[in-house]
């Protein structure tokens, strides 16, 4: 198999509030023999808020990001569910509307770029499953997470809207019964915890304007995992991670019970199973201590 190579769109949090996510992405890619070309020119995707204000601007900026992946001739890999949604949605709109694509390209031409629609866009979770394969991961595991009950938390924008989400990967995923993260947990040797909230919303996007709604949703998610005897949660989305890891106390107050749950990024879980050093995976950057490793 030739070496896997992707254009990496890190998104914003990986460089600020979730540095551990960037660290673990790099560590896991190295272990898996994946080459990542970081899109250092990329801007923020607008995080599903910019388009509420200025949809055209959001499309132009996302098209620019994708154009850089296309210049490398590579599949764009995202490591944030919301980045995935915004870039994939831009791609979907432009690929299906030649007039809009022309308008966007008129703007991109001002800076010497063009959106062609030639690069695939996929989340790192699905790149691992589709291109490396769960069997290969199983083979490569050196420290199976066999003593742990791990609760998968999928994050909305990887599974909904499903029609769009499923454009990015090979095995279709149902938003009502998603399996990718469960399968990855099992491949890493862990026990996948089934609970009602695993495909629900964490509330991140209304953190500022509707703190109570956001806190209750986060609280319900952590409580669901706790009630089903999870030792930890794992998520492919850094925004979900921020809510679950840094807001557990608020969330507990909102639903009237004490909450605490270590939460791993998907990359950290894979990294631990593949024998990466916990420091290299940035476990020291969590608000809720991860002290079982």
């Amino acid at each position: 198999m030739s070496k896997l190579k992707y254009a990496l769109f890190t998104g914003c949090t990986a460089k600020q509030s979730t540095p551990e996510q960037y660290m673990s992405t790099m560590a896991v890619a190295k272990k898996l023999g994946i080459e990542l070309v970081e899109l250092v020119e990329a801007s923020c995707c607008g995080a599903s808020h910019l388009q509420d204000y200025d949809e055209f601007l959001s499309l132009v900026l996302n098209a620019r990001n994708i154009a850089y992946a296309e210049k490398h001739g590579l599949t764009m890999v995202t490591i944030c569910n919301t980045c995935q949604l915004n870039t994939a949605m831009t791609k979907h709109k432009l690929d299906n509307d030649p007039e809009l694509k022309a308008k966007v390209n008129e703007k991109l031409a001002e800076v010497g770029l063009e959106y062609k629609g030639t690069s695939k866009i996929t989340h790192f979770l699905y790149a691992i499953i589709d291109d490396i394969g769960l069997d290969k991961i199983k083979e490569m595991v050196v420290k199976p997470l066999s003593q742990f009950n791990i609760a998968p938390f999928y994050g909305c924008h990887n599974i909904r809207p499903s029609e769009l989400a499923n454009e990015g990967h090979k095995t279709p995923e149902s938003p009502y019964r998603p399996t990718s993260l469960d399968d990855l947990i099992i491949a890493c040797g862990g026990e996948a915890v089934d609970y009602e909230e695993k495909n629900k919303c964490c509330g991140f996007h209304v953190e500022l304007q509707a703190p109570k709604t956001a806190a209750v949703l986060t609280g319900n998610a952590i409580a669901g995992a706790m009630d089903n005897n999870a030792d930890m949660m794992v998520t492919p989305c850094p925004l979900c991670h921020l809510k679950l890891d840094t807001q557990a106390e608020h969330a507990g107050e909102a639903i009237g019970r004490e909450l605490e749950m270590p939460v791993l990024h998907m990359q950290q879980m894979v990294g631990l199973a593949l024998g990466c050093d916990p420091k290299e995976l940035g476990l020291q950057h969590h608000v809720v201590d991860v002290n079982f490793v």
Binding site: K15, E41, D54, K107, E110, V111
Partner: peptide
Amino acid sequence: PTSENMDEIKKLVKSSSTA
């Protein structure tokens, strides 16, 4: 952090804003 090629981003924000 700051993106590379900021001049492009600034130019596009200026020319593509609709709101």
